[in-house]
Design a protein around this nucleic acid. Structure first.
Lengths: 350, 350
DNA sequence: GTCCTCCATGTAATCGATTTCATGAGAGTA
DNA sequence: TACTCTCATGAAATCGATTACATGGAGGAC
């Protein structure tokens, strides 16, 4: 592969001049510039980013570690991060933690070795020694979607507290009394936060929640299915199951379909996270939508701010309730709203 | 950040020795080895992969350029590629072409600059000058999911011809005569191939397909919706619409829902690509499933073979028809099969 | 004509690792 | 004791770029 030295020889100049052309240094004659460009195309020259990064101590690369690449929430997030980063001239390297702390650490380590300029992490666990060390060393870091309390790291996330309150009120208005919640792991801020909001809203709306109605899932389809099965097998099963994320909702649907139950007549369903196909299930699923793409974009802006030397604040954006039909028919004039909701679900897809 | 020189000084050895420890060179005393490890942990040493790659001319990194990161088919593919690559000690850098040739080229160029050891590309266009150059220079390259005819590049893909034949027979058996197809772009091998298979199968089953029933989409939700709308507005609309991929099927569902039509009574639907939620729509969608994860794994094995010096053959795996209910009730004893199909859709999710 | 200034270009050090070749200590043998 | 052989370790070149500093030629002022 052609090196800068070959280009220099071919163009009859020094490597310094070629480097200047590469970096748009204005102190190069128009004539030599064109000669250098000609040499580059003649030799199919592709600059070696490895060598450049070694010298400049910058890779113009961001590392993004997501929780689960099969979760549409994270892919939408990744897509937004990438778009925003590319616009700023950065490349994004995505690592898929698969919701496992060890695999998260594997990618964090790899990304550090590759000397990414900044790290965006959706932490999959409370805190690991590696993460702690990264924060101690003051390397550019932003937590995305999830946070770790006690660490001085800026974070970008959605707050679903209000939307969960609205959901519970909606359920109570529909006459439901026995509501179960399948949360995420207690080691994740999103799991804890959603559970807390659920319990608070239930209390506020006069719903008593027996302990067996609050289950700890792992944000994966399998656990949604298992907990749904367990809940349906209770002596007094709930009237509504609220799943803590879209993958667990998919698992719940699998289980409900397997048992031949009807939604919402036999069991009502709601989900945290809204995904496009929720509008097309039978019936369409009531869900809480996060401003996913905006979270991704803001996270990039925060990390770029850090790289430019400032110390930005954390960002919290509200999630919103999207009422559909999986918790029961809403009797008031909802026809118009139904159309709006379909639009909402499809919003980010165009 | 600590460098190998600092570790050497701290351990009282030379940089060469530290490098030997890093690379598990057996000719290092157990005693110095432990002293070097101690120095590394004391200094929080993280080896600089940039410097190492510059010297060794290898990055242990694979580049993967996918068509669209919001398409679950590609994310499942990416996930499988990543898993297989990680098992072999490689990191994967994913680029999202967003179905645009220019953005595909942007990532190919970036990945070449980063000196990835091999490239896995799902080409988004017939052929670009850059792609042609990459093949001419003989850099390790594999086409995934899609191929470009005329280029001597190994490819890994699924063949849906037989499954499409089965689908058309299934439609004919259900009494359908007017079948429309929304294909992918003619510039993509998958688009051409599916169209060809569709037309051949239609002819074979005695179905006449007027030209306005064969539409060219772009594998994105919006075009599925637009073509569905156009088809439904025809003086003689089709009885069945067969969408060329899962995103266009989602768009078709949007349009059908907007019009308040029922599936399959008003319009029947089938899709290329099977995704988990197709089992949960109303009604569940008949689809053609690709062996997605296996495609990803095989592609990694092929590129690794190339890196090891062999010249592997292309891989073609069959896609299979998954019959559900969106084309009409199957009257025979299908109760058991219904259960099997749900399992099939959920297969890769556990 | 001489000197100074400006500016395009070149020379060489540098980034942090790997790797070849040299070296010197210690063991073994006569 | 002297010599050879082995083997752990060190010194220095190298990968391909960037960049501080040096250089030399053209042009202007006197």
């Amino acid at each position: 592969m052609a090196r800068i030295k070959d280009v220099a020889a071919h163009a009859g100049v020094s490597v310094a001049t070629v480097s200047r052309v590469l970096n748009d240094n204005p102190s190069v004659t128009e004539e030599t510039r064109t000669r250098v460009y000609a040499a580059m195309t003649a030799l199919n020259y592709v600059p070696n980013a490895v060598a450049r990064s070694l010298r400049t101590e910058a890779t113009r690369t961001l590392g993004l570690v997501i929780g689960d690449i099969l979760n549409p929430f994270f892919t939408e997030l990744a897509r937004a991060v990438e778009d925003e980063a590319r616009a700023a001239g950065y490349t994004v390297v995505i690592g898929n933690a698969d919701e496992r702390a060890d695999q998260q650490d594997h990618y964090v380590r790899t990304l550090l070795e590759q000397r990414v300029d900044g790290l965006l992490i959706c932490p999959t666990a409370e805190v690991t020694p590696l993460i702690e060390e990264v924060t101690r060393n003051g390397r550019p870091l932003v937590f995305l979607d999830r946070t770790i309390p006690g660490l001085e790291v800026p974070s970008v996330r959605a707050d679903g507290t209000r939307a969960i309150g609205e959901l519970i009120r909606h359920l109570r208005d529909l006459g439901h009394r026995r509501v179960a919640f399948v949360s995420g792991p207690g080691t994740l801020s999103t799991g804890r936060e959603r559970t807390k909001a659920f319990l608070a809203a239930a209390a506020e709306n006069g719903l008593t929640v027996p302990p067996e109605y609050v289950r700890v899932g792992d944000f994966r389809a399998g656990s949604g299915q298992a907990h749904t099965s367990a809940l349906l097998d209770l002596p007094e099963p709930p009237e509504v199951i609220f799943l803590g994320d879209n993958l667990m909702a998919l698992g719940a649907l699998d289980e409900i379909r397997k048992r031949g139950l009807r939604i919402p007549a036999d069991i009502a369903l709601a989900s945290f996270d809204d995904v496009p196909w929720f509008a097309h299930t039978h019936p369409p699923i009531t869900a809480i939508a996060q401003p996913t793409a905006e979270l991704g974009r803001r996270a990039v802006r925060v990390i770029l701010d850090i790289l430019h030397g400032s110390t930005p604040d954390s960002v919290v954006l509200p999630a919103v309730l999207v009422v559909r039909e999986s918790c029961g028919e809403v009797t008031r004039d909802r026809s118009r709203e139904g159309g709006d909701e379909a639009d909402t679900a499809g919003r980010d897809r165009s």
